[in-house]
Each structure stands twice: as C-alpha cells, then as structure tokens.
Design a protein around this nucleic acid. Structure first.
Lengths: 95, 95
DNA sequence: TCGGCATTTCGCTTATTGCCGAAATTACGT
DNA sequence: ACGTAATTTCGGCAATAAGCGAAATGCCGA
C-alpha cells in the first residue's frame, strides 16, 4: 500500500497512467498498441528528459501498475489492469 | 488524488488511519471515542515528537481523511469515513 | 492573574525525491 | 565490425518531506 501510494504521489506519473488508458488518442502516430507505448513517445509527451521518464516508468512498474515488454531496442509499457483493479479493491477494503 | 496519495505515502500516517478504525483496541484508557482520539494518545502510540505527530494529523486532515474537534485543550481526531469511501471510489473509478 | 498542560507553529537539520546530462547498455542496419 | 538509435544507469544538484526541540498559542484551574 505504501509503495503504491508513493508511486501515485507524482503528477507526471498520474498523467502517464491516465494516458495509457487510451494510448491511441494520447500518443500520435502509435501503431499496434497491444504491447503498450514505447518510452520515446511517452517522453515526448511528458516533455522531460529520457532518464527522468525512465525512472518514472520504473517506479510505476515496481508498484505493479505497469507491465514492460522489451522488443528489440524498444521497451513498451502498458497498464496492468488486473493489478490496478486489485489495488483499488485493497484501497476500498483496507483504507 | 495527488494530495490524497501524498498523505498516504507515509508509514506513520497509514498506521494512524488504521488505528483510528478501532480506537478502543489501539488506544488504552480511551473514554468516549465519539469525538475521536486526542493528539497526546496518538503521539504516545506513534512514539515520535508531538510536533511531528501534529504535522501528520494536519496532513491527513487536509487530505480529507480525518476530522478534528477541538474540546477545551484537546483536539480529537477521527476518521472521516464518508470522504475515505469517496476517495476509494475515485481510485476505483479513475485509476 | 498566574502556572501548567495540550497542541500548534517556527526554525533548523537530515532524508528522500525529482530532475538533468553524461556514460553505459543493448539492439539494429550496413 | 562500426555507427546510430532507444533505453537505462550513474553522479550530482535542487526541491520537497520528515523529523526534532524551542517557542508560541489556547485553555483550564487555583
């Protein structure tokens, strides 16, 4: 619960989670979105450095909100809906 | 959402919220718990300084999780169950 | 009114987080 | 093998958060 809340305690990370709900509308020029969105696209949307975005994505992944798939030189990130729902349920139950 | 998550991003504050679910078992020698638990009792349970505990309680109140009632020289804090439920619902819906 | 108790505010120090650019890593194409 | 591109890791700096003790505030009783 603590790690998850920490991961959500940042405007940029909340925005990323929101955008990944519907990649097609938030990331122009996206192709097959089944695997998620690559770091570069997210970085351009966020507007800060690649290293910072990478850290944010790693934080969200450690918290269980994102899944990553490496394909070639790209890493695709997508929401882990199951774990997101599980977290929401835990908030409802435990908080 | 951001402010609420920040408020929950601390072990001590999470513990306080948890304890206040059932004051009678977590705070020895509590009387009428309708108004909540006074800062002194919470401070003894937490084990850190009065000023720190006061800051934590203020944070939780600003986030909407606690309500405060001043009675004489004591401030009683209790969970705001309605707003806590509302937050949980928002997490479930928006996240 | 004065002294004492509960709580909050203030000023400060330390720890954590956020951010960057540079360097390292990994993969692709030639 | 080499050069380029995507991403991550590293080292450092600035901003925010967490903690403390001392001082201030508010309230009660003598």
């Amino acid at each position: 619960m603590l790690e998850e809340c920490k991961a959500l305690s940042n405007e940029t990370r909340l925005a990323i989670l929101e955008w990944l709900k519907d990649p097609a509308t938030h990331f122009p020029g996206i192709g097959d979105e089944a695997d998620g969105v690559c770091v570069g696209l997210i970085q351009r949307r966020v507007g800060c450095s690649a290293s910072t975005v990478s850290a944010h994505l790693a934080t969200l992944q450690r918290a269980g909100f994102l899944q990553a798939t490496r394909r070639g030189q790209w890493t695709y990130y997508r929401r882990d809906e199951e774990r997101i729902r599980a977290f929401a349920a835990r908030v409802h139950h435990d908080l």
